[in-house]
Design a protein around this nucleic acid. Structure first.
Length: 421
DNA sequence: TCTGGGGTCCTAGGACCC
DNA sequence: TCTGGGGTCCTAGGACCC
């Protein structure tokens, strides 16, 4: 059996840990730039606020005092997530951390008679030790555990834990679950399902295997088998990410090439830092830009280009200079850019590069690596982003990003640094 | 005025090989 | 009239997730 532990309304719950006065009130957390709603309390859901709603459409509720809105505070959420996950990890033989607010627990070795009680105690422990409310769904497959946790979350009677441990419960749950609530059925598939007369998860599992395979391929088949109780969603090998991306929307649109160069070099520097942090290096550097797709009155342009390096790199200088070369090839005047980003991919372990360097200017390489190391060590102390390349912006990439409603960095030492500033 | 960021996997089609 | 067959690898685009 798998247990899916899911933090309820995670970002909102994080804010409430330090603002208990907001318990029972309508609260939302906004995306970067205070752009749109990405987390909602039950009260704000009940007010009809949908996931992804642009903030300007609900701002009047804030002005009227009916709603509290926070800018996102990822340092806080990441920290609290780590605390929740470490409690869970200590309790079971194996845990798969699936996202910032979700984890699958493997329950091997836990007496089946006691699973429900065990999960209830986990819910209580996380609530008491971290202050975050969680729901747990227990089922024979991950897709079913997702469904069970949804029941645990939406029906008070479960007291935080929903067990799907018999076939009768499974079928009942499938009957009550709309097909588009199923993990793996997204916004494209949902209308197709509808057109085939598949409304509930039960409708879906009642279709023959061949029918599913021919229409939906291996992905659909996997979902179908999981819903039938046959586990087939494997653990992702999370040891080394396959791509690393740093991108942001801008508070205002940018047309000037020099200004874009500053932003893109910051994104590239962030990517290089993330690579070094996990001991990786990348062969491919991609730069992309978007104009504002909501401005139908302006001409649109969504360019992207990838440069492959002869040898995988992770130094700030090489990733930044490559990204700037890439930018030069796609930048066109006369467009108002709203977003840009850098992705590094084709990632390999840093230490596999020895020997590949044959024929390369190894001393230049070594100098760059040494400089990146020094930058890391200076920048990791209190002088965040103190050392940077001349191509990078003065200040920090977060400058020029709106976050007017950010809560304090309650749990991280950066709080002190910010005060000094 | 104002619309997020970061990932993964699958598939179809083209290039290339013998 | 008539123009092979089979395989691999790579890439772009699409779909999904949180």
């Amino acid at each position: 059996m798998f247990a899916l532990v899911d933090c309820n309304n995670f970002f909102v719950s994080c804010e409430r840990v330090f603002r208990p006065d907001l318990e029972g009130k309508a609260v939302v957390v906004l995306s970067n730039n205070d752009g749109c709603v990405v987390s909602r309390s039950n009260e704000s859901k009940a007010m009809g606020i949908k996931m992804g709603t642009p903030f300007f459409k609900v701002r009047h509720m804030v002005d009227e005092g009916r709603l509290t809105a926070f800018s996102s505070n990822y340092a806080l959420y990441g920290d609290l997530s780590g605390r929740v996950m470490s409690i869970l990890a200590d309790a079971v033989p194996h845990i798969e951390i699936y996202s910032i607010d979700e984890a699958f627990l493997h329950l091997d070795g836990i007496d089946p008679e006691n699973v429900q009680e065990f999960c209830r105690s986990l819910v209580a422990r996380v609530r008491q030790w971290v202050g975050i409310p969680v729901s747990i769904g227990v089922a024979p497959t991950k897709t079913l555990a997702k469904i069970a946790s949804h029941f645990a979350k939406t029906h008070k009677g479960y007291r935080g834990v929903c067990m799907m441990d018999t076939d009768a419960k499974r079928l009942k749950a499938l009957e009550l679950t709309p097909i588009d609530d199923v993990w793996g059925v997204g916004r494209r598939l949902a209308p197709k399902m509808e057109s085939w007369g598949v409304r509930s998860a039960l409708d879906f599992v009642q279709r023959p295997k061949g029918w599913v395979q021919s229409r939906l391929g291996v992905n659909g088949l996997r979902t179908w088998e999981e819903l039938c109780g046959i586990p087939c969603v494997e653990e992702e090998n999370a040891e080394r990410r396959k791509s690393i991306c740093t991108s942001r929307s801008f508070a205002d649109m940018i047309e000037d090439e020099r200004e874009l160069e500053l932003r893109v070099s910051d994104f590239a520097a962030m990517c290089a830092k993330k690579l070094r942090d996990e001991g990786s290096a990348a062969y491919d550097v991609t730069v992309f830009m978007y104009t504002n797709r909501f401005r139908e009155d302006l001409s649109q342009y969504f360019p992207s280009v990838t440069i492959r390096l002869p040898v995988a790199a992770n130094s700030t200088q090489e990733i930044v200079s490559t990204a700037l070369r890439a930018l030069k090839t796609i930048y066109k005047e006369g467009y108002q850019y709203k977003k840009a980003g850098v992705t590094v991919s084709n990632i390999v372990p840093q230490d596999e590069l020895q020997g590949v360097l044959f024929g390369y200017d190894q001393s230049l390489r070594q100098k760059q690596d040494r400089l990146s190391e020094v930058m890391d060590s200076v920048n990791s102390g209190s002088g965040k982003n103190l050392l940077r390349l001349a191509a990078q912006r003065e200040g920090h990439y977060a400058d020029g990003i709106r976050c007017e409603r950010r809560s304090s960095l309650y749990t991280t030492s950066l709080d002190e640094i910010m005060k000094v500033h």
